[in-house]
Simulated assay, not measured.
Amino acid sequence: MRIPLRALGVTVASAALLTVGLTPAMAADGHVYSRVLTYPSGGTSGGESDADLNFTGARSVTYNNWTINDTCPGDGYRVIGRARALLTNGAYAYGTWHEDEGTCESADWGPYSNLELNTSTNIVKAGVEICVDLGSSNKCSTSYRDNPHT
């Protein structure tokens, strides 16, 4: 039986497209960056956090090269950050709060690597939450990456 060359080409191209179609989901590991400003009216004081995320399964993510930075000019408020993940049941999982201790002139918290967030429920997406601690409340911002395992 002879297979026409054109049919073989369509089959190969279709298989290639299916393989490429899986690539974006596998590329979900990577960098996240989040910034929060102390004052909504402008200025640069506040905080920022960034990390490289590596999803190691449906229920776990590892944070690498993670930093938290209090940005200048100094506003007198501390900056805190933590790992945060949205779970398939709609709830959130959180890591421990970390602080950039000192002023905006001090060194960043980190970089830290191999910090894991493990949950008992599948993770839809994970990221970093950065907050300015205003005393009576926190002003926060969060950035996420999708989990390719869910």
Rank of each mutant, 00 (worst) to 15 (best):
H31R: 09
Y33K: 10
Y33S: 06
L37M: 10
L37I: 13
L37R: 14
T38K: 08
T38E: 06
S41N: 09
G42M: 00
T44C: 02
T44Y: 11
T44V: 03
S45F: 04
S45D: 02
G46S: 03
E48G: 07
S49I: 02
D50Q: 12
A51I: 06
D52R: 07
F55R: 04
G57E: 04
G57D: 01
A58R: 11
A58L: 02
S60F: 07
S60P: 04
S60G: 12
T62K: 10
N65R: 15
W66A: 01
W66G: 00
W66P: 06
T67K: 15
N69H: 13
N69F: 12
D70Q: 09
C72Y: 03
C72E: 04
P73K: 03
P73C: 01
P73M: 09
G74A: 13
G74C: 03
D75T: 07
G76A: 02
R78M: 11
V79S: 01
I80T: 08
I80E: 14
I80W: 14
G81D: 04
G81C: 01
A83V: 09
A85S: 01
T88Y: 13
T88H: 12
T88N: 13
T88V: 11
T88W: 08
A91L: 06
A91Y: 11
W97N: 02
W97S: 03
H98D: 00
E101H: 14
G102D: 08
G102F: 09
G102Y: 14
T103Q: 09
C104W: 13
C104Y: 11
A107C: 07
D108M: 13
D108H: 14
D108P: 15
Y112R: 15
Y112E: 12
N114M: 10
E116M: 11
T119V: 13
T119A: 00
T121F: 11
T121G: 02
T121Y: 13
N122G: 08
N122T: 07
K125Y: 03
K125T: 06
K125P: 02
G127N: 10
V128S: 01
V128N: 02
I130D: 04
I130A: 10
C131P: 00
C131H: 09
V132D: 10
V132S: 07
G135E: 11
S137G: 11
N138F: 15
N138E: 14
S141C: 06
T142N: 06
T142V: 15
T142G: 07
S143T: 15
S143K: 15
S143M: 14
Y144A: 10
R145Y: 07
D146S: 15
N147K: 03
